[in-house]
Design a protein around this nucleic acid. Structure first.
Lengths: 127, 127
DNA sequence: CGGGATCCGTTATGATACTG
DNA sequence: CAGTATCATAACGGATCCCG
């Protein structure tokens, strides 16, 4: 096998490689230990409870987080990373470091690109 | 190490941390060098040309790939990774390795989860 | 408090037809 | 060949109301 293993659609689908808008944010928020539903909700800022619910359920379904419900009054539910979730957290961190490191670079590239649009044709090269 | 740097929505938005369906697949496909539009299209399988176009343009806009157009007949356009794009490729590879390593695990977790109609206090399915 | 159900606007993606 | 334009649809995300 010649290390020819590009990300294929299969892998993409199977493991939710393309996370929803909040997936990695939730994973990151659980880095320091378990959190309750509304704790997460507050910590995350703009998330709707529906999105949080579905994000959490999807993550639980795939085994990235565990859900512990206590039948107390008021009810209480704790969410925490599983071992697999911690691996995912590491990936998220790598992604975050990349983002922080290259933020300026990308923003600049974007501005440069957007600035070119107004002036006629795209630059062309001859061979 | 307080590591209080969770992925925030800002970072999320700014750097397209949440890639589109085809972003990482395209990046992966460029690992061995430049490719032409229809080469990519064929290699990727199910992608529509519109999706490929927008994916490529977005990646170019953010500085991950370069676009070289030749005014020949027939016209020809080459896409290739930039230095930044190669960094992104490494992230994609990390993701892919994770996916391959844990595929079975996640699929199993998913099946287990879906099988649990009858657990703790979450049994409201039937009517 | 945690979260299910529903309605609904925004975005993402695809199929198709056409052009320089 | 490498797109662009248009239309249609599916997935996503938010707001609201409801319940154990």
């Amino acid at each position: 096998m010649s290390t020819q293993l590009p990300i294929d659609s299969q892998t993409n689908e199977m493991l939710e490689v393309r996370p929803g808008k909040w997936t990695l944010v939730v994973i990151s928020e659980l880095r320091d230990g378990s959190r309750r539903f509304n704790e997460l909700r507050r910590a995350l800022g703009g998330i709707s409870q529906k999105s949080l619910t579905t994000t959490l359920r999807d993550l639980e379904r795939d085994g990235y987080i565990s859900r512990s419900a206590f039948a107390t009054i008021p009810p209480r539910v704790d969410y925490a990373l599983t071992a697999l979730g911690e691996e995912l957290l590491e990936l998220a961190d790598g992604w975050r470091r990349f983002a922080l490191r290259n933020r300026a670079h990308v923003v600049a590239a974007r501005i440069r690109f957007d600035g070119l649009g107004t002036s006629v044709s795209i630059h062309v090269e001859e061979e």
